[in-house]
Design a protein around this nucleic acid. Structure first.
Lengths: 363, 363
DNA sequence: TCTTTCGGGACATTATATGTCCCGGATGTG
DNA sequence: CACATCCGGGACATATAATGTCCCGAAAGA
């Protein structure tokens, strides 16, 4: 397993420094694999089977031949002994590379989420992984952003990482808003601050939304009637995209200074995850709702993209609960959380993991 | 050390499958490294320092910026925290990649050889490594071959691997000759056979040179006077390039069925290496000469390229002896032999290994 | 014997890479 | 404070590489 960890580390470096390297390696692996299966085979036939063009395949084959991996004669192309041993060695590498893809597919199935991205590592073990979550989320946001979009963000260190890692990108006329009124946290992790940071990166505008904490429900309702507050709420609820973090229910309740008796209620009801001020049990059912103003769960349904970002094996239960409740379009998590979620699922359901059939005896 | 082995294995795969991209990784490492040293620095300055053009550097920097590794502002470019941590992680990887380069430089110094290529592995441990020696030697030969060249080859399994791995390549009008008259070995490892195989790959011609074994010195001298034999010797000695193997002296003597009293003489005189029928002690001094006809040691001096190819830790002593005696222009060996040669040298001279100063605490 | 598939050659078209220059802005120095 | 230098980003012309498509003779298969 140490061997696999070492290879993973190297592949992670390469994916950041020369992503083309990893892609090209996969491509050539596919060519070698398919060639092995069909040999002896001609260029046009193989190109057709692999859904590429004859010229592109010829270039690849010329290279593989030059490297001593492929032999060609009038009957067609075959792998050389060296090519076969390299193919065998590659099985192990591809197993590692495709491992992440497997996790993503399994999480989509188990959580009922449309899209999943898994980054290497575990936030609980290496804080850098949170930055990586931010990096991947930021680039996904850039992919989907359109001029005129309203983007809502929640607070927390993970969403702060998204703003921190966002590349400068000006789609035009973007508004960034906090998902909820300011809640008591370090200022840099508050939704207001994150909204401002993100807006700056996007060359857009931001809305600040300050509210006092822990008012009664009637007090909040009264505030909501104030024209200025109402207008801000209107703009916030116009968001087409939301990026939100996920909290562990009890930890979050404590951080929010909920009274002990309310925390006791949460525990009694089996709360495990929190998002948007809602507390969910492991099945995704709302078991508590914190009073505040901002985005409501119902508002998410009309959005183009709901992006959940959270990692760390300790948050696996929370992620599962919130994902089931919120059904985000995209979940971005890390490998530590992903494995824990799937392990818990197997424990709950007795499902056996589907081992990936890898070529040529990969370990 | 297991970690390093795993990374080495993966890098070896990549160097064969995506060599250009491994080079790109090295290049980007150099850029990150130099940028780290000089930051904040502008593009033109860095391009100058790194002996490249402003446009090429801009392309690289744009990419590194996109990957979150570099930050740019009006004062110049700097590494981001992520860039710094990647640079640190790369130290270990570059240590592995450049390890071979270090070995090559050390061998050049210790053996007094002009050029050295070291391939991964140890022939003694993995027979595939011999094929790799053949692969690298064949491609070196292709680099230096010119139309009209005469190439001499010795016998043995390693030189046979060169012919086996030689890509088809027709420089024109090439003659391949055996370095010496046929000596008793399996026919496919005889210089005659190897000459024929290589000639076929090169679209050239070959010369066969059969001689009976173990004649007296006078008998060989008499044969050398025969017009046909003399003509062949003339053509053989016209060789501009020779590819020769290296044998362990005593093992070779036994294989050549030398009488026990002659083997005792070899042992008494400290023979360790054999090439071209000459037996050398560890300092490279001739301690015995086998009677035969073909290339003499003196003939090598006028050649454009003398290529020695041998591997395996068990041949380290032989390689050292022959390299010192023959002073090949190019030595192609494996890592097992290289490390053993350098370890023996340290033991002999008390030299401490010069640790490569690697950046950022690479292990 | 005929048909199909083969690798290799070739050329036109498209895409990418590269060299070079220049702009306004920021920084450093006197 | 003014001037010189260096900065990143923009831009365009040129060079190089990649790709699509077609065709040849040879070999293999039916």
């Amino acid at each position: 397993m140490q061997r696999e960890e070492a290879m993973k580390d190297l592949l992670a470096i390469e994916q950041r420094l020369v992503p083309d390297l990893v892609d090209m390696m996969k491509k050539r692996f596919q060519i070698l694999r398919k060639l092995y299966d069909l040999q002896p085979v001609g260029r046009r036939t193989l190109a057709q089977v692999m859904d590429t063009t004859e010229r592109i395949l010829r270039a690849e084959v010329d290279f593989l031949k030059e490297q001593g991996l492929v032999a060609v004669d009038s009957a067609g192309m075959r792998l050389t002994p060296l090519g076969e041993s390299l193919l065998e060695a590659l099985g192990e590498v591809m197993g590692i590379l495709d491992g992440r893809a497997d996790l993503e597919r399994e999480l989509r199935r188990v959580l009922g989420v449309k899209a999943v991205r898994v980054v290497a590592g575990d936030v609980d073990e290496a804080p850098d992984v949170k930055r990586e979550l931010g990096f991947v989320t930021a680039r996904f946001l850039r992919e989907i952003l359109r001029p005129g979009d309203v983007v809502a963000v929640t607070g927390g260190t993970t969403v702060a990482a998204v703003a921190g890692q966002m590349p400068v990108f000006h789609p035009g006329n973007v508004l960034v808003v906090p998902a909820r009124g300011g809640v008591g946290e370090r200022v840099e992790y508050q939704a207001n601050t994150i909204a401002a940071d993100l807006a700056e990166k996007l060359g857009g505008q931001y809305l600040l939304f300050h509210l006092p904490d822990r008012l009664s429900e009637e007090a909040y309702r009264s505030l909501a009637g104030e024209p200025q507050i109402a207008e801000k709420l209107r703009r916030i609820r116009r968001a087409g995209i939301v990026i939100h973090g996920i909290g562990q229910a009890i930890a979050m309740a404590r951080r929010r200074n909920l009274p002990p008796e309310e925390i006791a209620v949460l525990e009694a009801r089996g709360a495990v995850g929190e998002a948007f001020g809602y507390y969910f049990d492991r099945e995704g059912r709302i078991v508590y709702q914190q009073h505040t103003l901002g985005l409501r769960l119902d508002d998410l349904g009309g959005m183009r993209s709901v992006i959940a970002v959270a990692g760390g094996r300790s948050k696996a239960g929370a992620i599962t609960a919130v994902a089931r409740a919120v059904a985000p379009h995209m979940l971005i998590t890390d490998e530590g959380a992903a494995r824990m979620i799937l392990a818990a699922h197997r424990q709950d359901t007795g499902e056996e993991p589907v081992e990936r059939p890898t070529p040529h005896g990969a370990r």
